[in-house]
Amino acid sequence: MASGSIRVAETPFVSYLLRRADDALVLGHRLSEWCGHAPMMEEEMALANMGLDLIGQARALYGHAGAVEAAGHDEDDFAYLRDERGYRNLLLVEQRNGDFARTIVRQFLYAAFAEPYWRAMMASRDATLAAIAAKAEKEMTYHVRHCAEWIVRLGDGTAESRTRTIAALTDLWPFTGELFEVDEGDRAVIADGIGIDPETLRVPWRRTVAHVLAEAGLEVPKEGFMRNGGRIGRHSEHLGHLLAEMQYLQRSMPGENW
């Protein structure tokens, strides 16, 4: 563990919250990397808006995780003082931006899950989580809408855009299995009525994906080997670089107020 890192008492509920928070932060961070470099200035605004939604969700979830853990950790402790092995996000969201097709496909595959997930979570027995869900659900509905429009345009547009979109789908598809993964701890949180079983979202997720890809004239990739490991901190090599950049100031000048 790097010096200055925090040790988190990962009860099932704390882990459950950190997993969602890390998804939102890492994906929001990825979107923020586009700032100043988007393909159209109008789209610049959209990417930043989606990034801000996700960073906002992460902050709310870290705040709640801190309260549940009750060890005095705040949102920045969780974001800046955990190493790769302590991060609990999906491998999907840490994948690099690549071209615009890849960013949009990644966002779509995640949002098509997150939208029904947060809608279901509005019924969580945990009032704070239910409130976070109510806000996130609306945000993710828009992300699905916006990304779906782009996927249709990229799939239908030109031969180049179609090729790029198919490549993105093919490469990112193996990361989608992890969306539905649960472990022992998650099951306890689900049994408590705090979390929901992601298996119940498989059908709506597939329906959204199939519908949008059909409209784009694209095929749903074949089921095959699915990657996992993000939820227990076994990441791709990309996350370490993302964190090295994101955490640089907090690590090089530890303990300061900013």
């Binding site: 109008e42 429009e149 345009r153």
Partner: peptide, 11 residues
């Protein structure tokens, strides 16, 4: 028109 509407929302 659809992207125009979304861009108007974002801008």
């Amino acid at each position: 028109a659809t992207l125009a509407l979304q861009a108007a929302r974002d801008l």
